[in-house]
Design a binder for these strands. Structure first.
Length: 348
DNA sequence: GAAACGTGGCT
DNA sequence: TAGCCAAGTTT
């Protein structure tokens, strides 16, 4: 059965209580479960690990994080993507401190009311951190269920059916381990491509396996193709070699993050204009970056000047780099190639 | 329901 | 290389 497989094959993850200790009744720290779940949304374990270690070292408990400065948290999140998660992370930590006496609520319904916590995360925290029976459905679980039940309805239309299937399998005993087992199974055995059905603990009951359909499920509705956009990044350098950065608006793309001034990215450069009067020149350098829903080519214009009337901040390139989202980091690296082969992240 | 919202790794 | 994919949520 699945839990036996988990006891033998559970991945060792820094936010997880291993199965032997879980069987003995130990539970994971809700703060660490929550933080890991937010970081893991649409993000790989490999990408999350170093961020999780840095966050928990710097902010060991929810009240530490709640007391942090916004810009410090945003800088520490830089590079992980989906920055609304970081903004909601802070809102959530502060809500836990102010409205819940520094403790995460232990019910799925109450968790669902907190910023950044949706149906998946609420169920995951309720089951993993609090031992509640909750139906945890992420992309892994959807894939495992679609295969096990040979559900041929394409996603996302199949979601309700897959959740109903997942509900049938959710046990009262060790629901958190069950959820993690299903996700581990999806990540290591029932993988999107070339599933290792021979190594699967539930292969005998799998309808897709029986029908030879495993690798073809779940089916997905065709996705829209990505439009191309272009823009100009304006890089200002003062006599000390510092660069000029602005905090982006709270909402929208890269919201709350530092970045070089840019125009609105569209299908042409026609109405792009510099943020301030200066001797701008086209560096002829460009940066290419692909976002979730569009691809961007950024032309880099530069000026060596420190004009009056700007509201942003001037930072040494080395200090700024770690706080920048990746697309802005690419712009910086194009203009000021880093000394080291790789300067690993000195956010903060 | 659909679109917005990042990034890096793998094929 | 171009596309697919990863422990989703919000609007």
């Amino acid at each position: 059965m699945l839990l036996d497989w988990y006891d033998a094959h559970a991945r060792d993850l820094p936010w997880r209580v291993p199965p032997d200790r879980s069987r003995a009744g130990e539970r994971a720290d809700p703060y660490r479960v929550w933080l890991s779940e937010i970081m893991l949304q649409q993000t790989t374990v490999a990408a999350v690990r170093p961020y999780f270690e840095r966050f928990t070292t710097r902010w060991p408990a929810v009240d530490d994080l709640a007391g942090a400065a916004d810009e410090d948290v945003m800088a520490a999140w830089a590079g992980l993507g989906y920055y609304a998660r970081a903004r909601n992370l802070l809102k959530c930590a502060r809500a836990v401190v102010q409205d819940h006496d520094d403790r995460f609520p232990d019910s799925e319904a109450a968790l669902l009311g907190l910023p950044g916590i949706g149906p998946y995360t609420a169920a995951a925290i309720a089951s993993i951190a609090f031992g509640r029976r909750a139906v945890v459905v992420d992309g892994n679980v959807e894939r495992v269920m679609a295969r096990f039940g040979a559900v041929e309805t394409p996603l996302p239309a199949a979601k309700p059916e897959l959740k109903a299937l997942a509900a049938k399998f959710t046990p009262d005993d060790r629901p958190g381990d069950h959820a993690q087992a299903l996700m581990d199974l999806g990540a290591t055995v029932c993988t999107p491509k070339s599933p290792a059905c021979g190594a699967c603990p539930v292969q005998s009951g799998c309808k897709a396996r029986a029908a030879g359909l495993a690798a073809d499920l779940p089916r997905k509705s065709p996705k829209a193709r990505k439009p191309e956009r272009v823009g100009i990044a304006y890089v200002l350098r003062d006599p000390q070699g510092r660069i000029y950065l602005e905090r982006r608006a709270e909402k929208g793309l890269l919201g709350g993050m530092l970045g070089f001034p840019t125009g609105d990215w569209s299908d042409n450069l026609a109405d792009d204009s510099p943020p301030v009067r200066a001797r701008w020149r086209d560096s002829k350098l460009t940066v290419r970056h692909v976002f979730t829903h569009f691809a961007l080519t950024l032309h880099i214009h530069v000026a060596d000047a420190a004009p009056e009337g700007l509201n942003g901040q001037w930072l040494a390139p080395g200090a700024a780099r770690g706080a920048l989202p990746t697309v802005m980091r690419k712009v910086l690296d194009a203009v000021e190639p880093p000394r080291e082969p790789e300067a690993p992240h000195t956010a903060g």
